[in-house]
Each structure stands twice: as structure tokens, then as C-alpha cells.
């Protein structure tokens, strides 16, 4: 599994783990993020059970298990958090932040050491070392209880499945050509995202934030002018295309 630093200022760092060349073939490639400030780290969408060994390998290169104070799962999907039962056996004093809606579902992955911290529908905040991370509501994008993470200092929005693209494992970490990137994310957004209303609310909320990086859970990361291009494109996109005919 590869790792890149997408933000670094003193002891405040964002790492992205992904593009795993050893991942089983039919498993979707995922981006896992770790935010560290001082001696505190949080892993955002730590990933599925199949990637656990690679993730733990990667994480231990940058921090200690004692320093992992929290996990965050944007929603309940297996590619997001099915590794929970394994992390649960490594982390003794850690918390899992996730939308309250999913607690009784997520516990099916196994959780006896980690403490569940329910994020209310309106979102909340967490202190990580000297910084504050905000949990920003993104309900119905795509999950009915969905949160994103915003770091005001780093100006990064971890956007879960919003901005996700189904790309090659060999693809670069950052989106370089927006037009060429559209086909990799268009169907995903039109099919997975069920509600134009939810999409519009999210765009209005996110446009008020100062963002330099949008970091999705699959595919390329949007940086600088790509952020605006993505928001404009997503705003125009008609989502929720599936019919039952």
C-alpha cells in the first residue's frame, strides 16, 4: 500500500494510504486517511477487512498504536469499516466516531474495546491534539447517515464517497486532468447518490468552507482549482438515476 502526505505543518499531518498493488483483484481500491497532530492520530475510513494487514503495516510506519486515539467511519459500508473487529484488538483506548444511525449495524463488525462515539445528525467536533476537526453532515451522499471531516487548519475536506472515482490502482493520487477524470466518477455519482436535494444542501454547506483539498474515499484527490471544478460539476449533475421499471 502506498502512502503520501497531503498536508504537513509542524506536527500536523494528513496522510493518504491507498493504491494498494497487492489488494485482491475484485475489491474496490480505497483511500484511507490518517490525521495526526502531536501525539494524537485519527484514522478516517480505515477500510475493509481485506486491507487490514497492509493498513496496519502502513500506519505503524508513521505512528504508534497508543497514539491512535480515534477512528472515524463516514458511514457503514464494508469498504469503510469492516476492519473494525481487527482494529478493535489492536487499540485499547480508542474511540470510533460515526453517525449515530449506524451504531447497532457497525457493531456487527465486532467492537468490544473501542468505544462508540455517536455523531449527531447536525454534526459535531473532535479535538485532536491542538486542532479541531469538524464532522460535517453529508446525509444521503450516499448513505442515509453520512458524515465528512473538515480540517479548518489544513483546509482539507475528507468527503467520503463524494468525489469518488473508480480508477486504476496505478492512477496518480491527485486529479490532474478534470475532463479526463469525469468518466471515472460520473456513473458512480449518478447511481450511488440518491438525492439532488441532499446534493444541493451539501454543496451550499461546503461552499461556505475554506477548502484547498477535497479528499474522497476512492480515486483521485482534488486540489486547488480542481476543488471548484468538482463542486461546479457535481452541482450540475443529475443524481439518483436508477428506476424500478
Amino acid at each position: 500500500m502506498k502512502a503520501i502526505s497531503i498536508f504537513q505543518k509542524g506536527s500536523h499531518q494528513w496522510l493518504c494510504f491507498g493504491r494498494d498493488p497487492d489488494k485482491p483483484e475484485k475489491i474496490i481500491d480505497t483511500n484511507q486517511y490518517m490525521v495526526t497532530n502531536g501525539e494524537s492520530s485519527i484514522i478516517l475510513d480505515p477500510g475493509g477487512v481485506e486491507l487490514f494487514s497492509q493498513m496496519l503495516t502502513s500506519v505503524l510506519r508513521y505512528t504508534t498504536l497508543d497514539n491512535i486515539k480515534a477512528l472515524f467511519s463516514s458511514h457503514q459500508d464494508p469498504d469503510i469499516i469492516s476492519s473494525l473487529g481487527l482494529w478493535d484488538q489492536c487499540l485499547k483506548n480508542s474511540k470510533l466516531y460515526s453517525p449515530w444511525l449506524w451504531e447497532s449495524f457497525i457493531r456487527h463488525f465486532g467492537m468490544s474495546n473501542i468505544e462508540f462515539e455517536a455523531i449527531p445528525d447536525e454534526g459535531s467536533e473532535i479535538q485532536l491534539g491542538n486542532i479541531v476537526l469538524q464532522f460535517v453532515p453529508a446525509h444521503y451522499l450516499h448513505s442515509s447517515g453520512n458524515m465528512h471531516v473538515y480540517d479548518k487548519e489544513a483546509k482539507i475536506l475528507m468527503s467520503g464517497d463524494v468525489g469518488a472515482a473508480l480508477d486504476e490502482v496505478s492512477a496518480p493520487f491527485y486529479v490532474e486532468d478534470f475532463e479526463a477524470h469525469i468518466p471515472k466518477m460520473e456513473y458512480f455519482h449518478r447511481r450511488w447518490m440518491p438525492s439532488n436535494k441532499a446534493k444541493e444542501e451539501w454543496i451550499n454547506r461546503v461552499r461556505k468552507l475554506d477548502i484547498e483539498i477535497i479528499a474522497p474515499q476512492h480515486g483521485g484527490i482534488f486540489k486547488n482549482d480542481m476543488v471548484g471544478k468538482f463542486l461546479d460539476w457535481f452541482e450540475r449533475l443529475d443524481v439518483g438515476i436508477a428506476t424500478n421499471k
Binding site: 477487512v49 497492509q54 496496519l56 503495516t57 505503524l60 473487529g85 481487527l86 465486532g110
Partner: peptide, 24 residues
């Protein structure tokens, strides 16, 4: 079963403690 699976995942972790540091 869970703990056996966990150990098999742990066995695959490529980790060498830095000299003088605790083996995590």
C-alpha cells in the same frame, strides 16, 4: 475464529521495530 483470523492478518504485517523502540 475471529482471533485466528486476526492473528493471520497480524502475521502479514510487515513491521520491524526501530532499534531501541518498543515492539508494538
Amino acid at each position: 475464529f475471529r482471533s485466528q483470523s486476526f492473528v493471520s492478518k497480524l502475521d502479514k504485517v510487515d513491521y520491524e521495530p526501530v532499534k531501541g523502540h518498543v515492539n508494538e
